[in-house]
């Protein structure tokens, strides 16, 4: 077939370009603008070059926040992905209980972030929260406002409670797409339960699991609201993740220059990791597609 060449067709892309420019590119440029200037207040700015970037790269504060962030994302992925798969494997395949489970599992996903934070903030309080009170009565010291371990456990458990459903639902969708014949063949071949998982279920789920990992990684890497509501980034800086630190810097201390440099690097890291995920995913698809 001959393709018609018409360069004017590019104009059709214009509306999207304009939209993206206003929604993303222009705001981003203001950040770029801040990141290369300094100010002594009174709205007077002067050129600072890459000073803020090198400052930020030398600052322990950012590296610490990044470290905490990576540990947090790593921990929640290490829990949510296997747990989600486990839940999906044990959900009913059809009938009333399948629908019931699906609805039940969607509920946490529908709750706004700050409400999730508030729920856990209250849930964990030793004076009025069911969890905190019970643990206290059982003689377990639990105080997320003072104890670093308790704070981390609370934040991690909260994220697991909030998001494991997403992984489970995606994995479930992957499992549902496996024809019965595969399980029948596996029975005939006398495959163990592990072999069925390893050679039938996992390969069929690989695609959706990559999506789940990508979504959960990006989302947890940018997490702000829930830990902020529960711990406020404390005790000390123990749960101050990148976004929380960024907001402290930009709005709390009004250090616009360093904060802008920080957010640009933050943005680039997320972009880089997403690109890696995307490439891996596309390659997975290619293998499938032949």
């Amino acid at each position: 077939m001959n393709k018609t060449v018409n360069q004017k067709a590019w104009f059709l892309v214009l509306p999207v370009l304009i939209l993206v420019a206003f929604s993303a590119v222009i705001p981003l440029m203001t950040v770029v603008n801040y990141s290369v200037q300094d100010t002594f207040g009174r709205n007077e700015f002067f050129w600072a070059g890459l000073e803020w970037f090198s400052d930020m790269l030398d600052s322990d504060r950012m590296w610490d926040a990044l470290g905490r962030q990576l540990i947090f994302s790593g921990v929640i992925l290490a829990i949510e992905i296997p747990l989600g798969i486990f839940v999906a494997l044990n959900m009913p395949k059809s009938g009333f209980w399948a629908s019931f489970c699906l609805v039940l599992m969607s509920l946490p996903l529908l709750i706004p972030w700050n409400v999730v934070g508030t729920i856990w903030q209250i849930f964990g309080r030793v004076d009025i929260g069911l969890l905190g009170y019970t643990l206290d009565k059982l003689g377990i010291t639990y105080n997320y406002t003072q104890d670093i371990t308790a704070a981390w456990i609370t934040v991690v458990v909260m994220d697991v409670w909030h998001w494991t459903s997403l992984v489970a639902l995606l994995a479930y969708a992957g499992l549902q797409s496996i024809p019965d014949a595969y399980y029948q063949a596996a029975k005939i071949d006398q495959a163990s339960r592990w072999a069925v998982f390893r050679y039938i279920e996992l390969p069929k789920m690989a695609g959706v699991l990559m999506i789940a990992i990508l979504l959960r990684f990006m989302d947890s890497f940018m997490i702000y609201t829930e830990p902020f509501v529960v711990t406020g980034g404390g005790p000390g800086n123990a749960t101050t993740f990148l976004s929380i630190d960024l907001v402290k810097m930009a709005i709390g201390q009004f250090d616009l220059g360093p904060a802008a440099a920080f957010s640009l690097m933050y943005f680039l890291v997320i972009l880089l990791i997403s690109w890696v995920f995307y490439t891996v995913m596309v390659n997975l698809d290619k293998r499938d597609g032949v």
Binding site: A181, I188, Q190, I200
Partner: peptide, 15 residues
Amino acid sequence: NIAQVFQFPVVYDTM
């Protein structure tokens, strides 16, 4: 301990 072959192919893709 029976062998059965189905109408449509079933193979273990990753193997």
